[in-house]
Design a protein around this nucleic acid. Structure first.
Length: 475
RNA sequence: GCCUUCUUAGCUCAGUUGGUUAGAGCAGUAGACUGUUAAUCUAUUGGUCCUAGGUUCGAGUCCUAGAGAAGGCGCCA
């Protein structure tokens, strides 16, 4: 009677007839006089195992204590199920309660909760079907990204989380100090690093150093932005994948981005079908209360498959600008921000028009006006644009932002002067352009936005275990 | 940061033009039930109507301020 624990996702009809043991958390219990049914889930998949308890063979008080949320360990024989919703079930011969869950206080009930409520109990929400599905898919996305790059010969490098550079212009930074900022003698020279330091807003500049020695590298780490952004697409702490490749121009860069996104999506379609199918049905039910126009036009898995079918549309900023300027909504003043002058930054309503209405396909826009882009992007021959590219996806918008980097020392210095960026602080960065500089490119992919797109979750706070947003740093 | 909306039982919500003891479903509790699938049936506990002021004979409902949340926008990934 010393059975090894089986994981529920690995049980198949082949195990019918054998003695097994499982452990997990009770989802629901359905009890009648002679028999009790307990759904147990161990997080290994969306599927719970039905445990059948013959009430005549067990102490009633033991079964009474098995409530939603309790953890139990059950051994017995796996049998063909008489019920409709599963092909096999576990006939309990031995039940051990591992941990009670007081039903008066356990917040997760076998019913629909709002996502807002579940955010308040984020420590327990992985015990729900939706969140366990999202987190399993999140894991598989992360795994497939590592696999994609590994198979292509990229090296994963860790770039610093605490950084002294603040010149990247990627947003407001969180200051890091070991001192008491309220101290009136506060002085950075007395601080741990003897200088002001921040949490990283991007690993890119460091990753470039790696690429200019190791050819193809990528970072995959946490990123921190102290922007007061209150939207369903922004987090103060999120995870970013930043590949950086020597000898890649902007077109190689776009090819890689498209190949990677398609690889990950097809990996998830192949390996996470149970979870995707659960989320797909959830979304369909959820959207029943919405008017037709606000619903998704296609079920989740069809949306993902349709990304794989076609090449992403690729256009220059100028082409996109002309499409937008001549578009119906622009002529009829339906856009909140009218498209009139070349050089404007596109608003999310413009991006959505391109992706969801005009092309009905992911779109890569490249060659943006240099005025609206960062100093490190390579200036094009026209002198007005830079070799930047944004990958725009339906629903989540900008999922990737990248560029070919300015590898020419003089031009880079010129841009830094123009934009008033300290050459002293970035002398190490400039060194790579002094010594053996080469054409190179890279991009940043927001992990959570990709998870959002793949799972169909509407709020980014529901695709990361413990979201950090303005005014919210619980757990 | 800006705009809009919301906050009623543990959860999800209803609550009429301001009118008496504030309602439902689920959960909980007690019981019933020969195999259930968010089981079902019967009974039942549970309320600082977000907070503080104000208007009124009377406020869950109207007004002001504050707190929290959601959606949209900006910033971006």
């Amino acid at each position: 009677m010393d059975l090894k624990r089986s994981k529920i996702n690995l049980l198949t009809e082949k195990n019918i007839g054998s003695e097994i043991k499982i452990s997990g958390w009770v989802r629901t219990k359905r009890q009648s006089k002679n028999v009790s049914f307990i759904s147990v889930n161990d997080g290994s998949s969306i599927i719970s195992l039905q445990v059948v308890v013959d009430m005549n063979s067990f102490d009633i008080s033991l079964v009474d204590n098995i409530t939603t949320g309790a953890s139990i360990s059950v051994s017995g024989k796996l049998e063909k199920s008489e019920g409709k919703s599963q092909s096999f079930e576990l006939l309990a011969s031995n039940i051990k309660i591992l941990g009670l869950a007081d039903p008066e206080n356990y917040p997760i009930q076998p019913k629909r909760h709002s996502f807002e409520f579940l955010r308040e109990v984020a420590h327990l929400r992985p015990r729900t079907n939706t969140f366990s599905a999202v987190f399993r898919i999140r894991h598989s996305i992360i795994y497939s990204i590592h696999k994609f790059f590994n198979d292509k010969g990229f090296l994963n490098i860790h770039t610093p989380i605490i950084t002294s550079s603040d010149a990247e212009g990627a947003g407001e930074m969180f200051k890091v100090t070991a001192l008491d900022p309220k101290d009136k003698d506060f002085n950075f020279s007395d601080d741990f690093f003897s200088r002001p330091v921040n949490l990283t807003v991007s690993g890119q500049l460091n990753a470039e150093l790696g690429a200019l020695a190791l050819s193809e590298v990528y970072t995959f780490g946490p990123t921190f932005r102290a922007e007061n952004s209150n939207t369903s697409k922004h987090l103060a702490e999120f995870w970013m994948i930043e590949p950086e490749m020597a000898f890649y121009d902007i077109h190689d860069n776009m090819d890689l981005a498209e190949e990677m996104l398609k690889y990950v999506i097809s990996y998830i379609l192949e390996n996470c079908d149970d979870d995707l199918s659960f989320l797909e049905n959830f979304e369909i039910n959820d959207e029943k209360s919405l008017p037709q126009i606000q619903r998704n036009q296609q079920p989740l898995r069809d949306r993902l498959s349709s990304i794989l079918g076609k090449k992403f549309d690729r256009i220059s900023y100028t082409e996109a600008f002309n499409i937008l300027r001549n578009s119906k909504p622009n002529k009829k003043n339906k856009f909140e921000f009218k498209v009139e002058e070349w050089g404007i930054d596109f608003q999310s309503e413009h991006e959505r028009f391109l992706v969801e209405k005009y092309f009905k396909n992911p779109v890569i826009v490249r060659d943006y006006p240099k005025k609206i882009k960062a100093f490190y992007m390579r200036t094009n021959d026209d002198g007005k644009t830079v070799a930047a590219m944004d990958v725009l996806f339906p629903t989540v918008g900008e999922i990737i932002g990248g560029s070919q980097r300015e590898e020419r020392y003089d031009k880079l210095v010129h841009r830094m002067d123009e934009m008033d960026i300290s050459k002293d602080d970035l002398s190490w960065y400039l060194d790579t352009r002094k010594f053996g500089s080469v054409v190179h490119s890279g991009y940043g992919l927001g992990l959570e936005r990709l998870v959002q797109f793949i799972t169909g979750m509407k709020n980014i706070r529901d695709v990361i275990p413990f979201p950090r947003t303005p005014g919210n740093c619980n757990f």
